[in-house]
Amino acid sequence: MKINTPSKLEKILAAGHLAVTSECGPPRGSDPEVIVEKANLIKDHVDAINITDNQTSVTRMCSLAACIKLKLMGLEPVLQMVTRDRNRIALQSDILGAAAFDIHNVLCLSGDHQSFGDCPTGQNVHDIDSIQLIQTVRHMRDESKFLGGDDISRSPKMFVGAAANPFADPFEIRVPRLAKKIAAGVEFIQTQCIYDLDKFELWMKMAGDRGLLEKVSILAGVTPFKSVGMARYMKNRVPGIEVPDEMIKRMADTPKEKQPEEGVKICIESMQRLKEVEGVRGFHVMAIEWEEMVPEIVEKTGLYPRPSVD
């Protein structure tokens, strides 16, 4: 695999290792120590750390600032960027700002609708969409040009990622949609949390049949349940997540105090199975506000220690 950027994540994938990424949500305040503390919990067990961009449309410290903080700690950030809040001027400008701090990974997203967050009466921007943001970063990187056509001095060297949700509807375009993102220039994918493994395997098989898995690195997204309540919430309230009934039952049948443990166990079992799926090149472990569990999950899945690349 050809290396296009100085991204550590790209190098790890190119070397054929299973990559491990995780994520941190920035604080609802200006204290940078929150980021530092969260990062310290996971830094030895992951290759890169996503910083979410005002996730679920709740206003937080900006992703870029938090990524810079990680960079200053010597860590590898993945800058999440949603197209909800910024037009093409602001997006390009922030890409350059990130590149100025040698942030080498970006994840292009559309973002949840603002009605879910703390500013439901606000405007949204959506000047470009997530697929067009992928094109934008690739254009800036590979052509060294702005969207407006002018030259960029020192183009942003970013490894370009996107999300994919194998479980959203309609299922029949889930693989064509992946193909579209690949055509736009995406290089890695972090998937939505996978609970329905059969469906995920089907999606991967269909992607493989179309020859897509050689063109993109798929990191399987996983999130451990903390409780049966969370499992039910994910199933019923979070758009685009599917949780099989057996999994809910397994959580429900576990005594309350043992549920976190059971949730982690389910997560590890899923990862063991996912490791065997053709085309899975790594994991994106999203332990939402439960970062301290990441090391155990990574260790018990046999993904520790993390490889070093230069």
């Binding site: 909800r84 609708h113 969409d129 997530s130 994919a164 959203a168 579209k180 758009p239 685009g240």
Partner: peptide, 25 residues
């Protein structure tokens, strides 16, 4: 709801938009 020109987003569920079950995606 996000005027996405290359959709759908990941929130499309059973024909409905993520913002409201009553609204078609």
């Amino acid at each position: 709801a996000k005027r996405i020109l290359n959709g759908p987003c990941g929130g499309s569920t059973q024909g409905s938009c993520e913002i409201n079950k009553e609204i078609s995606c």
